[in-house]
Design a protein around this nucleic acid. Sequence first.
DNA 1: TATTTATACATCGTAATACTATGTACTTTG
DNA 2: CAAAGTACATAGTATTACGATGTATAAATA
Lengths: 112, 112
Amino acid sequence: MSEETDFIQRWNSQVKKGILEFIILLMLSKRNRYGYELIVEIKKYTEYDVAEGTIYPLLNRLKTCGMVDSNWEEMESGMPRKYYKITSVGKKNLSEMKKQWLYLISNIQSIK
Amino acid sequence: MSEETDFIQRWNSQVKKGILEFIILLMLSKRNRYGYELIVEIKKYTEYDVAEGTIYPLLNRLKTCGMVDSNWEEMESGMPRKYYKITSVGKKNLSEMKKQWLYLISNIQSIK
DNA sequence: TATTTATACATCGTAATACTATGTACTTTG
DNA sequence: CAAAGTACATAGTATTACGATGTATAAATA
């Protein structure tokens, strides 16, 4: 993604704080997904490299907060996957987050 | 701003990390401003309450990174003000941040 | 007149969170 | 049979917003 100064790199990392939580809830509101899948898809969507040390604690946090629920699913082959599903509380909070996100975007555009 | 659960409040605080830096550089690219003025105007624009313990260290950081420059200005009455001005390096980085910001917005909208 | 509120700067300690490093375990590919 | 990919997890570090606190001046208000 064009020129990446150290400043921009650090900035990107900070922007992820918060945005990442929003993106994950948004993705889970579309369909259930598992951790590793989220890493791959976030990379595809946003070009953000999300470390495993970021995503797994984050998903645990979301679960502790009651935003998502999880269940193991056995595969015919390979490691079992822990699928995450957004809860009704998660949906309610996501809807508020969406509102504030759109609000923020339009506010930033209005800066003069 | 409607219903603010603890979760949303914590989220907002995290979103500010990074976004705040962007907003401040954006504002300073329009015209020079001083710290206290930024607090008041960010509140007006975004409804974000930015603590003084947030803005002053942040401005110092931006200065250390060479993104902004500052100079004291005496007032006819009241405390002197430290005005901040964006540097050419700051402008270059801001332009990259804008690009990535717009990119992020469109990417989030495309999530399915 | 005394007190509170607003303006304007600053620093310190705390809490939250992304990232690096590391580890486990199974499968596929070269 | 080694390396890379898939899939989970945790511990320690660095960064940063925030609450608390402090200094100083001016205006409002009780």
